[in-house]
Design a protein around this nucleic acid. Structure first.
Lengths: 121, 121
DNA sequence: TGTAAATTACGCACTATTCTGTAACCAGGT
DNA sequence: ACCTGGTTACAGAATAGTGCGTAATTTACA
């Protein structure tokens, strides 16, 4: 997603949430503060570069807060900001929608093609 | 977004909605039935190939219904299915969230660095 | 009347752009 | 020297856009 087409808030939101990781990170951060390495363990398939980039994107979007602690082997904590916390139930709602409409969505394709055979008047 | 990491419904949902077009198409289809060329006019920056692919993706996800009319220069109508209609308010909620938290998100970075020195001194 | 052109919704092949991963390297602290 | 978190450099994969072709039928125009 390079650029936005409209300044529509939905598009802006999707620009941040699009992709495989953002919602997953949100999900893991629901549980509370996590460190960089925790998040890597939480999902091992993300490369360390991408995790850093995604976290930064979320941080810049104001959804995630990064806290660097001085001392010892360097320690950085990540947790959700207020807006981030407010976003969580909305994302959960999408998951619920997916489950609730499962059957309904599965029966697509044929609907009521009553009009579909009229050869135009 | 190649593959899913978990079978989490949120991830499944995001797989369908990720990208610039899906939510935009949902938005335009809210108004009712549209033809392929209507959707192209609605937003001229999408290429015909991508529009076709995106519509098919949404159709396969059971969000959009495609109705092909026989005859004449071929005519295809697109509209939202029941699940698609149910999805609309959820997406709107994301847009509202974006607007409502605008100020909050803008003031990220510094939060409550009680436990640490943000920039590491 | 014959023939070319337009329309609509694509599919295909090719190119351009962007994303993601690997690996290596850097910084601060012990 | 080693750890954690992060960045840069360079692939390689994926995604998006362009242009051409096609189906059936109507229309443009000589």
């Amino acid at each position: 997603m390079k650029d936005v087409v409209s300044r529509c808030p939905i598009e802006e939101t999707m620009r941040v949430l699009s992709g495989r990781w953002p919602t997953l990170l949100l999900y893991y951060l629901k549980d509370g503060t996590k460190r960089f390495s925790d998040l890597r363990r939480d999902n091992p398939t993300v490369s360390h570069r991408i995790l850093a980039l995604e976290l930064r994107k979320l941080e810049e979007a104001g959804i995630v807060r990064r806290t660097a602690h001085a001392g010892y082997p360097l320690r950085v904590d990540y947790d959700l900001t207020e807006p981030g916390l407010k976003l969580v139930p909305l994302i959960d709602a999408l998951g619920d929608w997916w489950e609730d409409t499962e059957d309904d969505r599965a029966s697509r394709a044929s609907s009521t093609p009553e009009t579909s055979l009229d050869t135009a008047a």
